[in-house]
C-alpha cells in the first residue's frame, strides 16, 4: 500500500502547530465542500483532506504517524514495522461512518488498532434491555447510504448491485475497510429522495439483539431524455414542423412502454403536454409531461432548399420575431 503524506495533503509543514493544521483543514474543507466546489476531483480530495485531518488533529495519532512514517516519501510502498499496533481509534474528529468509510487502507493499517470509531463501534439505538449484568441486549444501529439509480428503475422492479465501503472490526480486533456488495430489489415506484429500508442490513445487534436496518436514500443519474420531479416524468418530445403545425399522433417511448400521443395543431417549441397518470407508478401515479421541441429538417439537398423557398414565398407575412418584440 502507498504511504500517504498527510502534511503534504493539508499543505502544512511537519512542524506546523495545531492551529495551523486546523486553519489549513478549514481552508480545504471550504475549497472542496461537496455542495459548492467546482473542482472535478472535489469528492476524492475532500476524503483525503478528512483523512489527513483525522490523523493530524489528534496529538496521539499525529505522534504515531510521525513515528511510523519517518523516512517514507509520498506514494512509496508502505509496510508498518513488525508488531505495529497504533492502539488508536479508527476514526477521529467525529467523522461520520460514511466519511470514515472513505479513509484509505493506509489509514486503516496505521490507526485501525483499537477497533472502532463512532460508526464502526455500532452504537445501540437506545433500546438496550436486560435485567442483569451479562444479559445486555441492544438492537444494532441503523445505517444510511445514498444510492444512484437509473430513472428506468422507478418503473420496473429492478434488482441492482450496490457496493458499500464499511469499516468493520476483524477477528484480530483491527478495523478494516471492506467492500460490501448487496443485491437489492428496488421497489417499483420509488422517487427522488425516498428512503428504502433493507431490514437487518445495518449493524449487528448486541447480546442477541436484532440487527439494525440499512436505509438507502434514492437519487437518480441524469438521463439524456428523461427527468423526474417527484413522481412526475418529464420527457423531451421532438416533432417535425408539419406535425406541430397540423397536429399529429406521435409515438412516445417512456420506460417500459410506448404511448401514442396526440400533438394538437399549432403547437410550438416550449409547449408542454400533460398525460395523466403516466409518470412514476404508485397508488397515486405521477404525470407525464412532454416538452415539445420543433426540429427543422436540414436544407442540405436542392429539394429541401426548394421546400424552404416555397415556404418563404407562401408565408410572406410571417415574422417569427414579431411576437417577442424583436422586430
Amino acid at each position: 500500500m502507498e504511504f500517504k503524506d498527510y502534511y503534504k495533503i493539508l499543505g502544512v509543514a511537519k512542524e506546523a502547530t495545531a492551529d495551523e493544521v486546523k486553519k489549513a483543514y478549514r481552508k480545504l474543507a471550504r475549497k472542496y465542500h461537496p455542495d459548492v466546489s467546482k473542482e472535478k476531483d472535489a469528492d476524492t480530495r475532500m476524503k483525503e483532506v478528512n483523512e489527513a485531518y483525522a490523523a493530524l488533529s489528534d496529538p496521539e495519532k499525529r505522534a504515531a504517524y510521525d513515528q511510523v512514517g519517518s523516512g517514507y516519501q509520498p506514494g512509496q510502498d508502505f509496510r508498518p514495522p513488525p508488531g505495529w499496533n497504533g492502539g488508536h481509534e479508527f476514526s477521529g474528529h467525529e467523522f461520520t461512518p460514511e466519511e470514515a468509510a472513505g479513509f484509505s487502507d493506509f489509514f486503516s493499517e496505521v490507526f485501525g488498532g483499537q477497533g472502532g470509531g463512532r460508526g464502526a463501534r455500532g452504537r445501540g439505538r437506545g433500546r438496550g434491555q436486560g435485567p442483569g449484568r451479562g444479559n445486555f441486549r441492544a438492537q444494532g444501529q441503523d445505517h444510511h447510504a445514498r444510492v444512484m439509480l437509473e430513472i428506468e428503475d422507478a418503473f420496473n422492479e429492478a434488482t441492482r448491485q450496490i457496493t458499500l465501503r464499511v469499516p468493520t472490526v476483524g477477528e484480530d480486533g483491527r478495523v478494516h475497510i471492506e467492500n460490501r456488495t448487496l443485491s437489492v430489489r428496488i421497489p417499483r415506484g420509488v422517487h427522488e429522495g425516498q428512503m428504502i429500508r433493507l431490514a437487518g442490513q445495518g449493524s449487528p445487534g448486541v447480546g442477541g439483539g436484532t440487527a439494525g436496518d440499512l436505509l438507502l436514500e434514492v437519487h437518480f443519474n441524469p438521463h439524456p431524455r428523461y427527468r423526474l420531479e417527484g413522481r412526475d416524468l418529464h420527457v423531451k418530445l421532438p416533432v417535425a414542423p408539419w406535425e406541430a403545425a397540423l397536429g399529429a399522433e406521435v409515438p412516445v417511448t417512456i420506460p417500459g412502454s410506448t404511448l401514442s400521443v396526440r400533438v394538437p395543431a399549432g403547437a410550438q417549441s416550449g409547449k408542454q403536454l400533460r398525460v395523466r397518470g403516466k409518470g412514476v407508478p404508485a397508488k397515486e401515479p405521477g404525470e407525464l409531461y412532454l416538452d415539445l421541441q420543433v426540429v427543422l429538417p436540414p436544407a442540405d439537398t436542392p429539394e429541401a432548399k426548394a421546400g424552404y423557398e416555397t415556404m418563404a414565398r407562401e408565408f410572406p407575412a410571417f415574422d417569427p420575431r414579431a411576437a417577442g418584440g424583436v422586430s
Binding site: L182, V184, P187, G189, Q194, M195, L198, Q201
Partner: peptide
C-alpha cells in the same frame, strides 16, 4: 437478493 421496502416520506 435483499428486498427493499419503500418508506413513506416522513419515515
Amino acid at each position: 437478493v435483499v428486498i427493499g421496502i419503500g418508506l413513506e416520506e416522513a419515515c
